[in-house]
Amino acid sequence: MRLALRNYRNDARISQPEVAERLSWSPSKVIRIEGGSVGVSVTDLRALLDLYGVVDERIRRDLEQATRESRRPPWWSAFREVVSPQFAAYLGLESAAGELSAYDPALVPGLLQTEGYTRALLADGQRPAARTDAIVRLRAERQRRLLREAAEPRLRFLVDEAALRRWVGGPDTMREQLERLKSAARIPHVELSVVPFTLGAHPVLRNGSIALTFRGGDDVLFVEGPSGALTIRDDQEAVDEYLARFEESRGKAVSGDEAIGFIDEVLAQYPS
């Protein structure tokens, strides 16, 4: 459904903000509908199809039937006990983005973590085992959807050398994690760059975040910190500043085959 609506909108050459303006909706409503985070009512579906010039009765009938059958909770509803309201808002936008740009100054970005690495990070005795299991399963589902299922959003990761060398879970866990990074770097819609120590205090060093950018604007910045997570919306200046720093650091980092070679050098230093 969401892909069909996105394609019809693109065919009609109408941006997401234009849809919102012409239907008197908020821009985020259009993004959430195309991202699959909220269902679309039959009334709203008809308004969208009218706007996009979709007149084929069979297509309209099939989409209306699909809409009636799809009024179910979002995919992450099974993980509500570990999904904060801020993170739920982020998840609703993640799959609808055109591009995702992520950096963490100390750890492997969550979308690239192995189960062993994630469990080692969570092994602090501060949460029940069931909660840890739910977090691990949630992360695995996000990875399945973004790394394996879709060619969009395009995923861009900056991985700091500190993350490659920090022993999270011990050498076996780290060898598995580094091999995962190499595999991810070969996925067509993934761009992985390594930020070596030699870059020193590079521009994005203190700005571990995820930026989601959309063809129609209304970009989003997701920031995780000690006190929780914050989804920054309606502040394009903040997103642009982060992306500018991200691009500057990426331009100085190592990418492609060079990044894989860099990871291999680090791998060789982990004892068997």
Rank of each mutant, 00 (worst) to 15 (best):
I31Q: 12
D104G: 11
F197R: 03
F157Y: 13
R175A: 10
S41N: 09
R154P: 00
V54M: 05
V190N: 00
V159G: 04
L205S: 03
L121R: 08
L138I: 02
S209E: 01
V38K: 07
V204N: 08
V239T: 09
V82W: 07
L192N: 02
L48W: 13
G256L: 09
L267P: 00
G251Q: 05
V254R: 11
G125D: 11
S95C: 04
T213L: 03
L181W: 05
A201P: 14
L178K: 03
I33Q: 02
L230I: 12
A151M: 04
F197C: 12
W75R: 04
E247S: 15
P153K: 01
Q236C: 01
V223F: 06
A268E: 15
K252F: 06
F262T: 05
T43W: 04
P27V: 11
G36D: 04
L111V: 05
D257Y: 05
R166W: 07
L3T: 14
A78G: 09
D234V: 05
Q236I: 06
Q177L: 02
S255V: 09
S255T: 15
L181C: 10
T213W: 02
V19H: 10
R233N: 09
S26A: 14
Q16F: 01
A123W: 06
F246Q: 09
A123I: 03
L45E: 08
D62C: 07
E176R: 13
A238L: 06
P109D: 08
I59A: 15
P196S: 10
G256I: 07
F246K: 01
A129R: 15
R80K: 12
S26R: 12
N207D: 15
R6N: 06
I135D: 01
Q113S: 01
I263P: 05
Q177C: 08
A185V: 02
N207V: 00
E241S: 14
T198S: 15
R166I: 03
G170S: 05
R165Q: 14
V83E: 05
V40C: 12
G110Y: 03
L107C: 04
K182E: 08
R72F: 06
W25R: 09
V108P: 07
V223W: 01
S209R: 10
E265M: 11
T231S: 10
L181M: 11
L155M: 05
D56N: 15
K252N: 13
P73C: 10
T213A: 01
T118Q: 02
S24E: 13
V42D: 13
R166F: 02
G208T: 03
T173S: 04
R180G: 00
N7W: 09
S41H: 07
D172T: 13
Q65A: 15
G225T: 00
R2Y: 14
A130D: 15
K182P: 01
V254Q: 03
S255L: 01
I135C: 03
R148L: 10
N207R: 15
A211W: 02
S77G: 02
Y103L: 00
N10D: 14
G116H: 07
